[in-house]
Nucleic acid binder design. Structure first.
Lengths: 336, 336
DNA sequence: TTGAAAGCGCTAACAG
DNA sequence: CTGTTAGCGCTTTCAA
């Protein structure tokens, strides 16, 4: 039964106290330790292949070195979530922190509060579009001592560190673009009933349609999975006269819709224009690149981490907030 | 200064020892505790909003409840890695474990061994195509007591728990398919020089070309990013007579190549056939779906987790190995 | 059926 | 400059 080497082993080897070893290994600033000793300790630690026990360290310091990202992923995660995960991971890679991604959904909300949290007392939380969680936890003293930065397009609580993405202007622009392009029958494709009223895309759609005097038309989805959207879309197109344009809740749906159009030989953008939202890479690689509202995902992750680490270092930092614009990028799928 | 409630607080409240509280809360099997006490403890724990301190628990038990997945991602992560991450996450969601994804690359190999590991003593490791890491760590006693399951298409060490993906038959089938389709000038697109010789795709390509008596043609890439591949491919196509087919190292590259063809108005599959590898969703949603070698990612993750959890429960489990076939799925991009 | 006590590996006063 | 000491919160013998 081999057991990992501890600072005590090193201390014994060197005829020092384990406290000295601890100081030598950590606090590289501490002047109260001789250079010689520090070197000796470092060297033997290396030789003995010493690996600090983080559980022990965490126990005494109260710091785990773990950051959680709450990722709202009702149903399956789509490409957008994958990208955000990757950007956040990249952000943390050079840092002395580990990222744990906690998938959140309405189902998780059903559990008790403790189930919402990583069992580890994390040092900080990045809450990505996890507003339902924040609301549920609202003011919970057991959680809110942990620094939290909220990010993404859905933001209800403005009383905290925040990297918001404002998709309203982009959504408005998208609608204007479609309407100016002469499209009248514009449908809206979504699975996201619960969020509708707070969703800027939805609001932009309804307002602009109202303004233009066009009736709204919803294509509802019970599920955001590409395969499901494709089938559903195909069914819809077969049973209805195709609309002149479809404003899709996100790019995954837009791509699925695109494919459904292909399946039926309906031309995009000639017959049906398509607009998505998020700005995932895939929309650019289709034969007909899809117009979309591009979220600045990388910048969002970068800023969120900046805010979070600042808050962790100094809890008294004034509240930090930014709204980043999501910009419409017009591509072939919506040209007239 | 509020401090989290501990079992001692509960014990004090109830006039019990903290040991009793501990027993009541955990070991639900332990018969040596009265039902009444257990209930009282549970209830007050709930009321006081008790959250166990996992660092303390880990310190004494030696179990952290953390699983690491080593994800080999030289350069940026592509869609395939994103999918694998998601499947693994889904796999662990219902389990009492947290997943930490450690991005590995040749750069990480440059660091000391300890840098390779999550600072946390994890309970288990899923090594996804992290063979270079395993080789480097080969036999390292500090690491190999930790259960490791290796998964993916690159496998050099066969002496361990393993969920391999055999892409050789699929690759052979892909080459046969192209050659039978009458394509003679078949190029191979890759960025993965270091792996070449151990890469079944590469081997299949060279062997089949040799057999057919066709000269090989490599399109090298310094970088697997889609944007880079697209540019590079375009340059290549402009400066060379386009080949009749391109066998791409992975689907991301195939998609980028597809887009490059679109850019130049070269028709796929009429002018150039395309074959990818991995089986990411995106290849199915293009106007011309891309033929690819589909890796059973979900099954791979499922099995890897099964193996790992079995090994964690019982270290003496006989070695567990499976090879899953990756199957060629012929789609429009390579039809003749 | 419960309590007392030891100790997991480490950090951080406080002494020397 | 270094050693002694006291826990951090929890699990686990061993006693009662």
């Amino acid at each position: 039964m081999k057991t990992r080497v501890t600072i005590k082993d090193i201390a014994r080897q060197l005829n020092l106290s384990h406290a000295t070893v601890s100081r030598a290994l950590n606090r590289s600033d501490d002047p109260f330790i001789s250079v010689a000793t520090r070197e000796r300790v470092r060297k033997t630690a290396e030789e003995m292949n010493y690996q600090p026990n983080h559980a022990a360290r965490a126990l005494v310091t109260g710091k785990t070195g773990i950051i959680t990202m709450w990722l709202w992923s009702e149903g399956r995660q789509g490409s957008y979530h994958a990208r955000v995960s990757q950007f956040m991971q990249a952000q943390l890679e050079p840092e002395p922190y580990q990222l744990i991604i906690d998938l959140m959904s309405y189902k998780s909300l059903g559990f008790g509060k403790e189930k919402l949290m990583s069992p580890w007392a994390v040092d900080g939380i990045i809450a990505h579009e996890a507003d339902p969680v924040l609301s549920k936890l609202n003011g919970d003293s057991a959680i809110f001592p942990i620094p939290i930065v909220s990010m993404g397009a859905y933001q209800l609580m403005y009383t905290q560190d925040l990297v918001g993405v404002d998709i309203r202007p982009g959504s408005d622009a998208a609608m204007d673009h479609l309407i100016l392009g002469g499209r009248k029958r514009i449908a809206y494709l979504t699975d996201d009933l619960p969020h509708r009223v707070t969703d800027a895309r939805y609001v932009a759609y309804t307002v602009k349609m109202e303004e233009a005097g066009f009736p709204t038309e919803f294509i509802p989805l019970e599920n955001p999975l590409r395969a499901v959207v494709r089938t559903k879309m195909r069914e819809y197109l077969e049973s209805h006269q195709p609309p002149e344009a479809i404003f899709c809740h996100n790019d995954d749906m837009a791509i699925a819709a695109y494919r459904a159009l292909c399946d039926l030989g309906i031309r995009c953008p000639d017959d049906v224009a398509l607009v998505g939202c998020d700005g995932i890479e895939d929309t650019e690689y289709l034969e007909t690149p899809i117009t979309t509202i591009v979220q600045p995902m990388e910048r969002m992750c970068e800023l969120a981490w900046e805010y979070l680490s600042r808050r962790m270092k100094d809890p008294s930092t004034p509240i930090q907030q930014t709204w980043l614009p999501a910009k419409l990028e017009i591509r072939e799928s919506s040209m007239s």
